[in-house]
C-alpha cells in the first residue's frame, strides 16, 4: 500500500513534511482537506497540522473553535472512525460548521481516533465536499487504508522527541521477525506461509503488525528498517 506516500518514518520530522503528507493523503484518497491533532503526555506537547486554507485556519484559531469543535473533542473518545453525520446534534457542531460554511469548508467528513500505548491520543480528520451518497461510498472504500495512515502519522508525530523515540523502540515478536526475515530473503507471503506452516492470513496479520511497529507504510520499508535496527539479518 501507499507507495506514493512519503515515508514519514525516515523523514527529518519537520512541520513541512507533515503538511506535505496531509496533501498527499488528500490526493491519494480523493479528499479536500486533512488535519491531524495529537497530545503526547510523555513530552507534554500538543501537535497540530492542517492543510485547510489560511483564512479558515485564522478564523478557527481566533475564535477558539478547538474548544468546542466536536470533531475533535467528542470524536477522540470513540474507538471507531466517527462520521461527522453522527455529531450533527452534538453541542458545538452548529457553531463550528455554520462558520465553516462561510469559508467554503464542508461538514462532510470523518475523524479517525488513534490511541497510543502511553495515553497518547491523536486524530486524523478528512473532508470532501460532495453528496451524501458519494461520501458514504468513498468513506467505506478508503477507511481501511486511512486507518493505517492515521496511525502512521500519529506514531511519527509522537516520536518527535528523543524520550518518546526511546520508549517507542519497536518490539517485534519472534513470529513477526521470522516473517520479515523470510520476506527479506525474497520469499512471497504465500511461500512464507508454506515454510512456516501457517495460513496466508496469519502471515498477513503479523506482517501488518510488524510494518506498523517499524513505522513503515510498505513491506520493503519495514524490511529495510528491521535490518537497520539489527532485528533481522541482511541476505
Amino acid at each position: 500500500m501507499s507507495a506514493d506516500l512519503i515515508d514519514l518514518g525516515s523523514e527529518s520530522r519537520q512541520a513541512d513534511s507533515f503538511v506535505t503528507f496531509l496533501d498527499q493523503i488528500c490526493e491519494r484518497f480523493e479528499l479536500d482537506h486533512a488535519a491531524y491533532a495529537g497530545t503526547n503526555p510523555v513530552s507534554g506537547a500538543v501537535h497540530g497540522y492542517v492543510n485547510y486554507p489560511e483564512p479558515w485556519k485564522r478564523h478557527y484559531a481566533e475564535n477558539g473553535l478547538h474548544r468546542i469543535d466536536p470533531t475533535l473533542l467528542v470524536a477522540s473518545r470513540s474507538i471507531a472512525p466517527v462520521d461527522w453525520q453522527r455529531l450533527e446534534r452534538t453541542p458545538g457542531f452548529d457553531k463550528t460548521f455554520r462558520d465553516a460554511c462561510d469559508f467554503g469548508i464542508t461538514d462532510r467528513g470523518l475523524t479517525i481516533p488513534v490511541r497510543g500505548p502511553y495515553g497518547d491520543i491523536g486524530m486524523l480528520s478528512v473532508t470532501r465536499d460532495c453528496s451524501i451518497a458519494e461520501w458514504n461510498k468513498l468513506s467505506a472504500h478508503i477507511l481501511p487504508d486511512l486507518q493505517s495512515v492515521a496511525v502512521h502519522v500519529h506514531d511519527t508525530v509522537m516520536r518527535s522527541d528523543a524520550l518518546s523515540r526511546a520508549l517507542r523502540y519497536p518490539t517485534l515478536s519472534t513470529r513477526e521477525r521470522e516473517i520479515l526475515q523470510w520476506i527479506a530473503a525474497g520469499k512471497s507471503q504465500q511461500d512464507v506461509g508454506d515454510i512456516l506452516g501457517i495460513s496466508h492470513r496469519t502471515v498477513e496479520v503479523h506482517l501488518r503488525s510488524g510494518r506498523e511497529k517499524l513505522y513503515a507504510l510498505t513491506t520493503p520499508q519495514a524490511v529495510g528498517r528491521a535490518i537497520m535496527l539489527g532485528l533481522i539479518y541482511p541476505l
Partner: peptide
C-alpha cells in the same frame, strides 16, 4: 497467553 512475546499492534486489528 502470549508466552512472553509482545502483542500484535495494528491500526486494522481490534
Amino acid at each position: 497467553l502470549l508466552d512472553g512475546e509482545p502483542p500484535l499492534r495494528s491500526a486494522t486489528l481490534w
